[in-house]
Amino acid sequence: MTTVTGFEDTRFGSQSTFFQLDDQWRSATGKGVSVAVIDSGIDTSHPEIDGRVRASFEARVDNKKVVFDPSEAGDSAGHGTACAGIISRIAPDAELYSIKVLGAGGLGDGHAFLAGLEWAVKNRYRVINLSLGTTKPQFFAPLHDLLDRAYQAGCIVVAAANNLPQPSFPSVFSSSLISVIKSEDTDPMKFGFHYGQVIELTAPGVNVRTAWPGGGYRNLTGNSFACPHIAAIIALLLEMHPGLTPFQVKSALYAIAQENQEGKSTN
């Protein structure tokens, strides 16, 4: 049983309890929870992913606007399939939605992924995996606005931190999303939470073995692969507690990570 409280601050003592989270989520499978993967597409025929992708969409520019069409293009880069593989392994019954914003000719900049995020929020996918970001300052304000809209719509956006020593958006926004950076841990359940740091969550992201287009597997390193670990954990939590708000989900992650940390220090 995990007691979910506010973020504890020793200056003011412990906050009041929000809710009790039993351990059933640990054996959940993400059933009934929609998870959007905004990325390079997904190889839906991969054995680990086959049957789990409910729909695939692809960005296309039409009259200077980005529109989304049903897609059968799969994934020519591998990144989206790798993220989907991680989610499928932890939350095998989660309903995946592929939103392909990378890979199309001339569509590589922030506009496509901003449009993809907007599309995901409009469709009210409960969890949105965003292993992407942009460092371009012109996207700060529109992304901030969009992330607030996602928060208000109850969509839980999980974003990967920049792998380069430079802040990227939206991962540096603190309040409206959950940002993740890689750790060398290997157990997906043993994620960490560093309250007060710009990127709060840590999850496995070094040498992660996951699905790759064509039916194979790769060992991959990057914050991109830490992000879907947390997206999948959230899918497990939401299966057992569908009514959780983004704020409550973050609080639950914090409480679980505290327990993980205590477990580590007593072991």
Binding site: S40, S76, A77, G78, H79, L102, G103, A104, G105, G106, L107, G108, L132, G133, T134, T135, A160, N162, N163, L164, N207, W212, P213, G214, G215, G216, Y217, R218, N219, L220, T221, G222, N223, S224
Partner: peptide
């Protein structure tokens, strides 16, 4: 465009480390 790890790195602006690159019919 968009093919392989280099294509992804160009379009995403993010670095990537991959082991076991060879194997199937990839770029």
């Amino acid at each position: 465009a968009g093919k392989g790890i280099a294509g992804f790195v160009l379009s995403s602006g993010q670095p990537m480390v991959v082991s076991d690159v060879g194997g199937e019919q990839t770029f």
